[in-house]
């Protein structure tokens, strides 16, 4: 036993103590809850220090960390902590996220045991996603979710769940910090794993894009701008070729973009331009798309000539704009119609 300072508790001891205090916190009771909250925070700090080390101590050895992780799996404590997150104090909530994120990254060779564990306990993910509905824990859950989204297996569970569609509400909540955090997670889920994302978007095209439409029409400026920008990125990603082809065949989508081109906000105009260009550049324009472009041929050319003329230094933009103008000028009705 060390002469100075507290003796080191074993991983099993700390996990047991933490579980007992979380259980006590869950049961409630006014006085007891306060004591339980203190105990939870204290034990969380102990676990966090084992994983990260402190200014005086190095992190624990791999063996101890392995034991700790095993205890956390066996005790089902990760889920329990997340279920009771709103009852844990402010700093404790952040410690939960730090412990979770560290354990999640654990690797044995090429295996990620925590990821495998969570695959068998997907409730953890659903609980985390639902966290966006509670102000006090939304950001904590967000950091854990984005860490989870780095792993394809976990991203897949989230994308394929009905709960994923709640993100369309979360990204639009009135508090800016939560909405923008939810958007980061949403974006991560839709872009991180290219092939998985492409498959997801293809299979669920109707559902996803009918929800997405709402974001593009949002009252909230930031939501509108962010979702338009993300749409542009999604459509221009070569993995999403099938999705793009489908998107640019729909005349309603073209109408929306043409209207966004002349929104008040310059940034929205600019982002809309990057989606609009795909419609025009498409060599096989379906008739309804071609018809709209033809009906507005002159106006579009005139409009684009005057569009963001102050971006003289942005070469790529100017090249693209010149290309679009040429394309539109050269549009001719399909013979035989």
């Amino acid at each position: 036993m060390p002469l100075f300072g507290k003796s080191q508790k074993s991983p099993a001891d700390v996990v047991r103590a933490l579980k007992e205090s979380v259980n006590a916190l869950e049961r409630g009771g006014e006085k007891k809850a306060e004591k339980a909250q203190e105990d939870v925070s204290k034990n969380l700090v102990l676990i966090k220090n084992m994983l990260y080390g402190t200014s005086d101590a190095e992190p624990q050895t791999d063996i101890i960390v392995a034991q700790l992780a095993q205890e956390l799996y066996n005790s089902n404590l990760l889920l329990l902590l997340i279920q009771n997150l709103s009852k844990i104090d402010f700093e404790g909530k952040k410690d939960v996220a730090q412990v979770f994120n560290n354990i999640l990254r654990r690797q044995i060779g090429t295996r990620s045991p925590t990821v495998e564990y969570i695959c068998t306990k997907p409730e953890i993910l659903f609980q985390l996603m639902a966290g966006y509905e509670t102000q006090e824990i939304a950001l904590n859950c967000g950091t854990m979710l984005r860490e989870c989204a780095r792993y394809e297996a976990l991203a897949k569970i989230m994308l394929n769940s009905e709960d994923f569609y709640n993100f369309f509400t979360y990204v639009e909540v009135s508090t800016f910090d939560i909405a923008s955090d939810a958007f980061s997670t949403f974006k991560e889920l839709l872009t991180r794993h290219k092939i998985l994302c492409a498959e997801f978007l293809e299979t669920n095209y109707e559902k996803v894009f009918s929800h997405y439409q709402r974001l593009l029409n949002s009252e909230n400026y930031v939501t509108r701008r962010q979702s338009l920008k993300l749409l542009g990125e999604l459509l221009l990603d070569r993995h999403n070729f099938t999705v793009m082809t489908r998107y640019i065949s729909n005349p309603d989508n073209l109408k929306l973009m043409m209207n966004m081109l002349k929104e008040r906000s310059r940034n929205i105009q600019f982002e809309a331009f990057h989606v609009f260009k795909v419609f025009v550049a498409n060599p096989n324009k379906p008739k309804p798309i071609l018809d709209i472009l033809l009906r507005n041929q002159e106006k579009l050319v005139e409009f684009l000539m005057k569009f963001h003329t102050d971006r003289a230094e942005d070469e790529q933009f100017n090249d693209e704009k010149a290309y679009l103008i040429r394309q539109i000028q050269e549009l001719r009705p399909v013979p035989g119609h």
């Binding site: 043409m258 008040r264 106006k299």
Partner: peptide, 8 residues
């Protein structure tokens, strides 16, 4: 930009 009305 309000001077532009698209014809759908």
């Amino acid at each position: 930009i309000n001077s532009y009305e698209w014809d759908f």
